[in-house]
Amino acid sequence: MTNDDVLAEFRGAGALREGHFVLSSGLHSPVFLQKNLVFMDTTRCERLCKALAAKIIAQVGKVDVAISPAVGGIIPGYETARHLGVRSLYVERDGGEFKLRRGFTVEPGEKVVMVEDIVTTGLSSRECIAAIKAAGGEVVAAACIVDRSGGRADVGVPLIALATLDVPAYPADALPPELAAIPVQDPGSRRLKA
């Protein structure tokens, strides 16, 4: 599956949006990938995750388990794990840190692929990988549907992306004038109030 094929899936789902958006990282961007519109379509999600699983196998071989960060990584993590034929676990925040909970465990030395939805800065991926390592897993790679950093995100292990885009993202105090002139939208969930 090529970058264009992946983008066609997002466009087909109405999930490739343009405007002025605050990303979960807090950065601002003229492009937002509304991934949930893609993942709610089981056929579309299966195509993407099956292709990601094939790419993981081609690059790192067999793994023992796929682990994702909650909440955004759970669906692509599960579907990718299904195509890898391995368990699907996820980490979630507990006291502000990612941890395996709900009876999830990894055996020491198990080969883990960390599966994420979209990578921008790599922060969530790095935090997830740290939690997996703390639990005894050996993270052989990280994988995502879209790396929107243009390949610049450093997650601390090899990053396997189904598609790589170079989408600009800016701190709030360094917006280009054309982006600052557009009303901002905050479609993510990280800053929702309880």
Results as ranks from 00 to 15, higher is better:
R11E: 11
G12V: 07
G12W: 02
G12D: 01
A13D: 08
G14K: 09
G14T: 15
A15C: 13
A15R: 05
R17Q: 14
R17A: 15
R17W: 14
E18V: 09
E18T: 10
E18H: 12
E18Y: 12
G19P: 13
G19R: 13
G19M: 14
H20R: 09
H20C: 04
H20D: 04
V22E: 05
V22D: 06
L23D: 10
L23M: 08
L23H: 12
S25R: 08
S25C: 12
S25W: 09
G26M: 15
L27V: 14
H28I: 06
H28R: 15
H28K: 13
H28M: 13
H28S: 05
S29W: 11
P30T: 15
P30Q: 12
P30S: 12
V31Y: 14
V31K: 15
F32M: 08
F32D: 10
F32H: 09
F32R: 04
F32N: 08
L33Y: 08
L33T: 10
L33N: 02
L33M: 12
Q34D: 15
Q34Y: 15
Q34T: 14
K35M: 12
K35N: 07
K35Y: 11
K35G: 11
K35E: 09
N36K: 04
N36C: 10
L37I: 06
L37R: 12
M40T: 14
M40W: 13
D41A: 11
D41Q: 11
T42R: 07
T42P: 11
T42C: 14
T43Y: 08
T43G: 08
R44G: 01
R44Q: 04
R44D: 11
R44H: 06
C45T: 07
C45W: 03
C45Q: 07
E46H: 00
E46G: 04
E46I: 10
E46Q: 00
E46Y: 10
L48E: 03
L48R: 00
C49G: 07
C49E: 01
K50P: 07
A51F: 04
A51N: 07
L52C: 09
L52N: 02
A53T: 04
A54Y: 04
K55A: 02
K55I: 05
K55Q: 06
K55S: 05
K55M: 03
I56K: 02
I56V: 01
I56P: 04
I57S: 12
I57L: 11
I57Y: 09
A58D: 05
A58W: 02
A58I: 00
A58Y: 02
Q59A: 06
Q59T: 05
Q59L: 04
V60A: 05
V60S: 03
V60M: 03
V60R: 01
V60H: 06
G61L: 10
G61F: 02
K62E: 14
V63I: 01
D64G: 13
A66R: 07
A66P: 06
I67G: 04
S68C: 07
P69R: 00
P69S: 05
P69H: 02
A70Q: 01
A70E: 05
A70F: 02
G72D: 03
G72P: 07
G72E: 04
G72F: 00
G73R: 00
G73N: 00
G73P: 00
G73K: 01
G73Q: 00
G73E: 03
I74L: 01
I74D: 06
I74N: 02
